[in-house]
């Protein structure tokens, strides 16, 4: 790790102030489960590290009407074990239960995961698949506009995610095919159905990060059943390829995972 200036603000406002002061050289530390390994490998070298762990008001899980509010600093384990989440969106709790491993889930946070937008992270699929709204200290950003590319988001300088709002769907589920080595998503598909709206979001597979599958969504809108996806396929163009999975294999897995997610959402 390179040396950095460590700051421990108490409020979002202070944190935002520090971030602004750091210019482009500041980084927010949430759970640190991706950032710290990256810094250890000297692939990231923030001049200032702004620790959010003692900032008030960034945690908490609340159901407000038909919307589930999850504070940005909420840990994966807390989402996974939350009675509120398990009741409102069991597919989201299950997704959180499958992130990393138990020790990682005890540190990693939803806000950190989303802000980093790792192309193999799980939460971005849930945000897109549920049509979530990402709330920052400055504005509200629809998930469809938030994830702009690999490790890239709509967040502007000095902007801090404070919470994520998930509309509660009728049905939702996530199916992940983990990379055998890292256990990150090699292909993860989140399906969500709310009223007549169906969303299918794919993570792990796209060279530009999480993306939706309009064809799959259209087919499932007609009938929300795995059979509706028969005959549909995803082109391998633009998908990631590495030693563990070629773009072809990833394209195939998207189809399989999508069907399994639909079945899971239907309780099959």
């Amino acid at each position: 790790m390179y040396a950095f200036n460590y700051q421990r603000p108490k409020t979002v406002r202070q944190a935002a102030g520090l971030l602004a002061k750091a210019g482009g050289d500041g980084k927010l530390l949430a759970g640190g489960q991706t950032l710290l390994p990256t810094m250890k490998q000297r692939l990231a070298s923030p001049a200032m590290l702004i620790d959010l762990n003692q900032v008030d008001g960034m945690g908490g899980i609340e159901l407000k009407g038909r919307n589930l509010h999850i504070g940005a600093m909420t840990k994966h384990a807390d989402v996974a074990n939350s009675h509120i989440v398990k009741t409102a969106i069991p597919g989201l709790a299950a997704l959180a239960e499958g992130i990393g491993d138990p020790a990682v889930r005890n540190r990693g946070t939803i806000g950190g995961s989303i802000a980093n937008n790792d192309p193999a992270a799980d939460y971005p699929a849930a945000c897109l698949g549920l049509g979530a709204t990402i709330v920052t200290n400055k504005r509200k950003i629809p998930a469809d506009e938030f994830f702009t590319g690999m490790f890239d988001t709509a967040l502007e300088d000095g902007e801090i995610i404070t919470k994520v709002i998930f509309p509660v769907p009728q049905k939702a589920a996530y199916e992940k095919f983990p990379n055998p080595a890292s256990r990150y998503a090699m292909v993860g598909v989140f399906v969500g159905k709310k009223g007549s709206d169906v969303r299918v979001a794919v993570t792990g597979a796209g060279a530009n990060g999480v993306f939706r599958l309009p064809e799959f969504e259209a087919a499932l809108k007609t009938r929300f059943n795995a059979k509706s996806l028969d005959g549909l396929s995803v082109p391998a163009d633009g998908l990631n390829g590495d030693i563990h999975a070629s773009p072809d294999y990833r394209a195939h897995l998207i189809g399989v995972m999508a069907k399994r997610a639909v079945n899971k959402a239907l309780g099959k």
Binding site: Y6, R8, L29, G32, Q33, L36, P37, K40, L49, D51, N53, P102, A103, V104, N106, R107
Partner: peptide, 11 residues
């Protein structure tokens, strides 16, 4: 349980 290699002591 956490991984102590992935947490800053100051934090």
């Amino acid at each position: 349980a956490i991984k102590s290699c992935t947490a800053l002591a100051v934090s």
